[in-house]
Nucleic acid binder design. Structure first.
Length: 499
RNA sequence: CGGGGCGUGGCUCAGUUCGGUAGAGCGCUGCGUUCGGGACGCAGAGGUCCCCGGUUCAAAUCCGGGCGCCCCGACCA
């Protein structure tokens, strides 16, 4: 038996063991170090795959819970479809297989023998799900069919980054069938709205939503829509997509139903997904040079209580810390006491700041004498005091609203940043290139719809057409001319360099 | 797959030019003093120097071959 190849773990350069590389110096190094040092994730033995560590997974679980509730509230049920899909299934939809072929992992051997037909490790599940739906749906009375699944998928990537692009990732994929095109398209937009709401209200990350160009749409879709979030380096991150699939898959899998009028028709499909990439988006939206910054609604721990243990009798302080924790728990605040006795308070402060906990509460002997506690917010404005000394009762009573305020503060900051880095009314490719190569950000221009212009801009500036924004994001004054220089603009579009 | 760089305690790296007892900082373990922003002292653990072969009295260091990883480019939730 051959020895397995030795796999050297990858490492990141850290000049100072204690500090992260500042964002301004090297954003990408900052990101990598933060993810590792905050214990969100680690590199796994197989290139491009990752381990999501407890702290990162707890964030994902909070995301899952919120999203799952929203899916249920819009009428969906969860189910589970298998990991392995016959190769022939993917090949049925021509654009689909063309799009995914380069990144498929294929199982060719099993049970000690070569398989008659190779099995694909799902890169997405449209095909296998449609094949099953075809069995289950007979009549318009069976529609709409609204199912979601939480699963892992594999897409063999050449260049990988923790959370942002790994060969295997966790996601949810919703797959629905509707009786009419209108209803399916409406549903596609409804789910786009659900994603947007989740990103704004839970992640404090305000995306620009819109329609994908044909060049950028999902392989097999008629139309794709996306949420484009702006990261702190002013690059765009596609954070969620929803697809109107038309009857493309239904036709290949013979998914038909009898209409009210008694005619046979192909079902109209949608699919939509968000992945653990959202954790990376969260990092790059709110993180600072100290580490992660978590919106309270997604923070596994919202308040970390650090007891100041000095002298011989630490019992009363620990008891007080525990009492505070349980008082917070009664107010539905996720609080935790860091009672470790081998670390100094300073060490704990840095650690929890690195992990992004929104509020720290300190309590020591001096506070107990005065019946007070110390509160420290993870991010504060220049005007705000570093530490707040508050009567215990007041601190406890106001923490829920402080968490809400912190959540709102993050959203406002992210929104302000997005707007500051949105450039409207840009008229030439030269101007676009200058912005993209300089500060970056979103560039709004007119477009004729000519794919040659899109291709040219991608070649020359590395910026891609992120989306044709939904109405509320469009400029007050609609652009008249196409950025390509020839022809009138038929729409306004957003360009940016993207992840 | 092209172009660059790198493989040495858990982590970051020095040592390689010019061969001669494997090192530092951080982390880890034990004891003590500490603890309100990364504490200190003492004692300790931890290494087939990526692998295989060659040269040599002697190889982390020189030579040959392999493997792996990182960064930049071509595909992408």
């Amino acid at each position: 038996m051959p020895r397995p190849p030795r796999m050297t773990p990858r490492r990141e350069t850290m000049a100072d063991d204690k500090k992260l590389t500042p964002r301004a110096e090297d954003f990408s190094a900052w990101y990598n170090q933060l993810v590792l040092r905050s214990e969100l994730a680690d590199h796994a033995p197989v290139k491009g795959s990752m381990v999501i560590r407890p702290w990162g997974y707890a964030i994902w679980e909070n995301m899952q819970r919120a999203l799952d509730d929203m899916f249920k509230a819009t009428g969906h049920e969860n189910a589970y479809f298998p990991l392995l899909i016959p190769m022939s299934f993917l090949e049925k939809e021509k654009a689909h297989i063309e799009g995914f072929k380069p990144e498929l992992a294929v199982v060719t051997h099993a049970g000690g023998k070569e398989l008659e037909e190779p099995l694909v490790v799902r890169p997405t599940s449209e095909t296998v799900i449609m094949s099953m739906y075809a069995k289950w749906i007979q009549s318009y009375r069976d529609l709409p069919l609204l199912i979601n699944q939480w699963a892992n998928v594999v897409r063999w990537e050449l260049r990988t980054r923790l959370f942002l692009r790994t060969s295997e990732f966790l996601w949810q994929e919703g797959h629905t069938v509707h009786a009419t095109a209108e209803e399916a398209e409406e549903h596609t937009l409804r789910m786009l709205g659900v994603y947007r709401t989740f990103m704004e209200e839970w992640m404090a990350m305000p995306p620009v939503t819109g329609l994908k160009s044909d060049a950028e749409k999902f392989a097999g879709a008629v139309r794709s829509y996306s949420c484009e979030a702006m990261m702190q380096d002013n690059r765009a991150l596609q954070a969620g997509t929803t697809h109107f699939l038309g009857q493309n898959f239904s036709k290949q899998f013979d998914l038909t139903f009898q209409t009210e009028e008694g005619k046979e028709e192909y079902g109209w499909n949608t699919s939509w997904g968000v992945s653990t990439r959202l954790v990376g988006a969260l990092v790059m939206t709110h993180g600072d040079d100290q580490g992660l910054v978590l919106p309270p609604k997604l923070a596994p721990t919202q308040v970390i209580i650090v007891p100041i243990l000095k002298g011989d009798d630490v019992g009363p302080v620990l008891a007080k810390a525990e009492a505070l924790r349980s008082a917070l728990e009664e107010r539905d605040v996720r609080a935790k006491v860091d009672a470790r006795d081998h670390l100094s308070p300073g060490n704990k402060f840095y650690e929890w700041e690195r992990k992004g906990v929104p509020i720290r509460m300190e309590v020591g002997p001096k506070d107990m004498e005065k019946d007070q506690v110390v509160l420290v917010k993870r991010v504060r404005g220049e005007e705000e005091p570093r530490k707040e000394f508050l009567p215990e009762a007041e601190a406890l009573a106001t923490i829920p609203e402080r968490l809400d305020a912190f959540q709102a503060q993050l959203l406002a900051a992210a929104l302000a940043r997005r707007e500051e880095n949105s450039h409207r009314g840009v008229k030439t490719i030269g101007e676009l290139a200058e912005i993209v190569e300089g500060s970056g950000g979103y560039v709004y221009t007119g477009w004729s719809g000519d794919p040659a212009v899109e291709e040219r801009i991608k070649e020359e500036t590395k910026a891609t057409l992120r989306c044709i924004p939904q109405e509320e994001f469009r400029s007050a004054e609609a652009p008249q001319k196409c950025i390509g220089g020839e022809g009138d603009a038929t729409m306004e579009v957003v360009w940016a360099r993207a992840y």
